[in-house]
Amino acid sequence: MSTDQGTALRPGEHGPRRDDDPYDGAAPFHRPDDAPGTRTAGQRVRLALTGAIVVAPLAALAAGVWLAWGRAITIIDVLLGLTLYVVTGLGVTAGFHRLITHRSFTARRWLKIVLAVAGSMSFQGSVIDWVAIHRRHHAFTDRPGDPHSPYRYGTGLRGELRGLAHAHLGWMFGNDPTSTRRYAPDLQADRTMMHVGRAFPALCALSLTLPFVAGWALTGSWHAGVTAFLWAGLIRVALLQHITWSINSLCHMIGTRPHPTRRHDRSTDLWPLALPSFGESWHNGHHSDPSCARHGRRPGQIDLTAGLIRLFERLGWATDVHWPDRGRRHETPPSPS
């Protein structure tokens, strides 16, 4: 199934749907051409950069543990790391995801840019690519066409274990590109978002430079700058990456499914990840109504991103917020082809 063919999807669309869908929900649906094969020079460079983005934070985590052995991490490292985790994490959840991908609310122009920049500093890809991939995920959730379904290799134990690794990390190294022309034409027509997308490498560099400069400036010690670079820079990136990737993997395999979704969609609500993911792990609630600004649909389901959007609304920075309609009965839509 080529993602470069067909008409462009408008934001909020789930893709083509057919009632005579041949997929049975259990068979593997990976394709032979998904595997790495002959790549162009540009694709090899992109793959190398992806590897660096994945491996470097993990290496920093190992280095940070070694440096911290027998001594405490400084309060500056903790505060800087927490601050940047929150800023970049909410840039992804409120900006990349709920605002730009699903249009759960309308934001002031300056706020949309700020959120897009903050999300870009999370090392999760440019805003254009991130949005396109996520819209494709919703168009073909857990069925042929989904770029990171854990059921790609079938529903047997071996297939699910292989699929879990694919959904969490492996999909980024496959040969299954997502067409931004098809899935994000609105962003390609937005000159500012295109500039933010092109600035992704520079914003990643800024994301790592800020903690070093802050640590050095606050203490006057280059050693404090280096430890801040490790803990509030690379290690913070690693933690946020794996929390986000867990939504792709764990939140389609483990948890509860209290809300109806389309056929074959196995999204779940996974409460242990609710706080570190800022409410994104109420994933079944999200898939039941993708354009809703609140993913935690039940009482007691903490959704910090929804709280931030509520604050934006009260400040007059956000309008047309799609809050849950308590009186509306959610129906399971037909599956896409």
Rank of each mutant, 00 (worst) to 15 (best):
S267K: 05
V196E: 00
A8K: 05
V196L: 06
V237E: 06
I302F: 12
F200T: 11
S179C: 08
S221E: 14
A52C: 14
F229L: 04
H259I: 08
L315Q: 08
I53M: 09
R71C: 04
T106Q: 05
S126I: 03
R152F: 00
S122L: 06
P276I: 04
H138I: 09
A48S: 10
P272V: 10
W130H: 07
I128Y: 01
A116M: 05
L275P: 12
S335H: 03
T106M: 01
S288A: 14
I235S: 03
T7W: 09
Y151V: 06
R236A: 01
P177K: 12
A214R: 03
D146L: 08
G174A: 15
W282Y: 14
H322A: 14
P185F: 10
H134A: 05
R39V: 04
D129N: 14
E13F: 03
R162G: 15
S249E: 13
A116P: 01
H264D: 09
G156I: 09
H259F: 13
Y23D: 12
L270G: 07
L206K: 02
T227R: 07
H14S: 11
A48N: 10
E13C: 02
H138N: 11
V226E: 03
P299A: 13
L67G: 07
I247D: 00
V92D: 00
V131S: 01
V117N: 00
P147V: 11
G125R: 03
S2G: 13
V92N: 02
V213I: 13
S277P: 08
G174F: 15
T219Y: 00
H242W: 12
T319K: 12
P324A: 15
A139T: 04
R298E: 15
A26E: 11
S120H: 02
C204G: 09
R158C: 08
R314F: 12
A217E: 13
F200L: 09
G279Q: 01
S221K: 11
I100M: 04
V78G: 02
D146N: 04
R328N: 05
R328K: 10
G81D: 01
D142K: 07
R326L: 15
V196D: 01
Q124N: 12
E280M: 04
A318I: 09
G37D: 07
W271E: 08
T141D: 01
K112E: 04
E331T: 11
I128D: 00
T141L: 00
R297C: 14
R162M: 05
H168N: 04
L311V: 15
G316S: 14
A232E: 03
T178Y: 06
A41L: 15
G156N: 15
V321M: 10
L84S: 02
G307A: 14
P201M: 04
H286P: 02
G279C: 06
V65W: 09
A52M: 13
G225L: 00
R10P: 12
T219F: 01
Y23Q: 13
L169E: 07
G163D: 04
H14G: 13
V54I: 14
R39W: 09
M193V: 09
A165F: 12
